[in-house]
Design a protein around this nucleic acid. Structure first.
Lengths: 207, 207
DNA sequence: CCTACCGATCGGTAGG
DNA sequence: CCTACCGATCGGTAGG
């Protein structure tokens, strides 16, 4: 059993002493998102953080555990952001929906936020024994959304069945991972605020 | 250069003489959908149609061309079905939307309709030189949808920007590939007609 | 379309 | 965390 990792080859001068594991997760997320789980080799990931090919296995038992760590990180961060967005007491349901939608777009498209797109794209690659842990977190996320959609449906502001509405709205947002590019190439690209407003406008039926 | 394929090992007694290529495309679509492009080997596909491992390369230059053929088949079939669904003259825009939505659900979930889900899941795996041909077909499909959404937006029946509405509605439907199961496990599962009605209800704003 | 095979890649490991 | 390496897999090909 080797000693705790210690390296002098840190990329950033002020790097924390023991965040190599976090580095691997972050870089793996980026590469998995770009090239897919199967299209990314452990060598790619290792070299991207300045390690040799075998070294990631000091931090993760195998490639699939690294994939799980990426998804878990994404859901934990997403839950934190979402809970914070709704922390204010007594928000009307319409405002809660708007914040949920806006936060979710951020989770997909903010810089460095590659974890959830990996979950969406490479869910199939996660062995079922690892899926349970992720599903547990995902259920908590869905439950937050469901509460708001139940309220909106009860008020007649969302017409579809509340559960299907949740799946469809999240689907509409998630699909933006396939077409939305944050880097504005053409001048008149919509930003995430605008995208969130448009999404809410699409599904909300004013009384 | 070998002669045209001829086999006596056809699975179905009345099999047409020269549809081995079509068999490969159909079986590849199913396997790609289940296990992903990278997760499926040429050997898997070959054996599933009763060939040996090297034989698919008699029909396709490489694995990526088989992937492209799957996507192309999906778009051609989808375009046919969609054009037929809208063939009736002078349908109101709301009815056209309903038919577009219902048809798209069928394209994703009907038995044997695995081509478009492969395109959605494994788009990343298609080399860019092959993407052009597929994008051309996809643009035609999108254009059909866009016409209807432009009309609905002009009539005030769809609130969001018409182009974003198209992306979001197709996203909502496409995402069902990740959660909808046609085989009813619990008794009260919604069918595709119900799903289409709910989708229309979510996004359409009656005047 | 089959047989026989190659060459490269890749996840993972032993031992330090 | 590195060095050195293994074993299996897999896309693809030659030749018939």
């Amino acid at each position: 059993m080797p000693a705790k990792p210690r390296t002098t080859k840190d990329k950033t001068p002020a790097a924390a002493p023991d965040n190599r594991r976090a580095d691997l997760i972050r870089v793996a997320a980026r590469l998995f998102r770009e090239k897919g789980f199967d299209g990314t080799t452990i060598r790619d990931i290792a070299h991207a953080v300045g390690m040799r090919s075998g070294s990631p296995f000091y931090h993760f038992a195998n490639k699939h555990e690294l994939l799980m760590a990426v998804m878990e990180e994404g859901l934990r961060l997403g839950l934190d952001r979402t809970e914070e967005a709704l922390a204010e007491a007594a928000l009307p349901a319409t405002e809660r929906l708007h914040r949920l939608v806006r936060t979710h777009y951020g989770i997909l498209h903010d810089t460095g936020s590659d974890f959830i797109p990996v979950m969406l794209y490479d869910w199939r690659s996660l062995p079922s024994q690892y899926k349970r842990r992720i599903i547990e977190l995902k259920d908590r996320y869905d439950a937050i959304w469901q509460r708001t959609l139940d309220d909106l449906h009860a008020q007649g502001l969302v017409r579809a069945d509340a559960k299907l509405a949740r799946l469809m709205i999240l689907g509409a947002i998630n699909f933006s991972a396939t077409w939305y590019r944050a880097k504005p190439r053409s001048a008149k690209r919509v930003d995430l605020d605008e995208l969130a407003a448009q999404t809410v406008a699409l599904v909300l039926h004013p009384p």
